[in-house]
């Protein structure tokens, strides 16, 4: 591997872009005099990250827990559902159209109702994260499962493979790259779903997620704190995305072109 392909070589260009954008933003804010209740200065956001770090860290932890729970539920339920759908054309015709509900439901309208349906706390928030992030897992996993090489399917049949063995040893491994594509999309969506739900949750004692923090900061015209929380939510999504990438790399590096 050449040095410029290494982790540092890959980190420098986006970091430089980020830094440049922040500097330009700061300069524009200072020269044009845009009021900080409309848009905070980057330096103020940084200060808020430092000053409010304890509150923000608590919120980040709470949001991360909810997002990860929803994401894990999406990964497991989405993959299982896709396996079921791939096994039967009838099931696929009957049920697959309804999984689109997860993709098309206006989550902002559903989120407040989730609060009535589930006991206040982690549950409704994680469910919201699940609802917005499960469809990409179902759709991509199903695509992968159905795209198994027909010649290999014949081979498995020739040797009298049990359907479970065909699923476990052929269909699932060959669908794995697609599963990871679904999980990458789901990781970001789970964080969005979590923050949206938190907008409606309001403050539950000791359980203030980033979404709650954002809403209350905006009410107090603390745009610096709101942006700090938004930044953390984005970074959480990025971290989860990175986690999926790492898992994909571990699982696929030996054999799949996408990881070589």
């Amino acid at each position: 591997m050449r040095a410029r392909d290494g982790i540092i070589g890959r980190a420098i260009p986006p970091a430089a872009v980020f830094l440049a954008a922040v500097v330009v933003w700061e300069i524009i804010m200072r020269t044009t005099g845009i009021p900080v209740y409309l848009l905070p200065r980057p330096s103020a956001v940084l200060r808020s990250l430092a000053v409010d770090r304890e509150a923000l860290a608590g919120s980040l932890g709470w949001t991360a827990l909810a997002a990860l729970s929803g994401f894990a539920a999406s990964a497991i339920a989405g993959a299982l559902l896709a396996i079921g759908l791939s096994a039967s054309t009838f099931l696929r015709r009957a049920i697959y159209p309804y999984t689109l509900f997860f993709q098309t439901v206006p989550i902002v309208a559903i989120a407040p109702m989730l609060l009535f349906w589930f006991s206040p706390g982690l549950e409704p928030v994680a469910v919201c994260a699940f609802v917005v992030s499960v469809f990409p897992v179902i759709a991509n996993t199903l695509d992968g499962l159905l795209a198994t090489d027909p010649a290999l399917r014949d081979l498995f049949r020739l040797y009298g493979a049990h359907p479970a063995a065909t699923m476990w040893k052929l269909n699932l491994p060959s669908a794995l790259p697609n599963v990871f594509t679904g999980l990458r999309i789901a990781a970001g969506l789970a964080v969005i779903g979590t923050v949206v739900a938190e907008f409606f949750v309001g403050q539950i004692v000791g359980k203030v997620g980033l979404g709650v923090r954002i809403v209350s900061a905006i009410k107090e015209s603390r745009t610096d704190l709101a942006f700090a929380a938004v930044l953390l939510a984005s970074l959480l999504g990025l971290a989860m995305f990175g986690g999926v990438n790492l898992a994909a790399h571990m699982a696929l590096r030996r054999w799949h072109a996408s990881e070589q």
């Binding site: 081979l155 030996r254 054999w255």
Partner: peptide, 12 residues
């Protein structure tokens, strides 16, 4: 036993 026109191995 049967051998296809292409190798059709399990890449993983």
């Amino acid at each position: 036993a049967y051998v296809f026109q292409d190798a059709h191995l399990l890449p993983w």
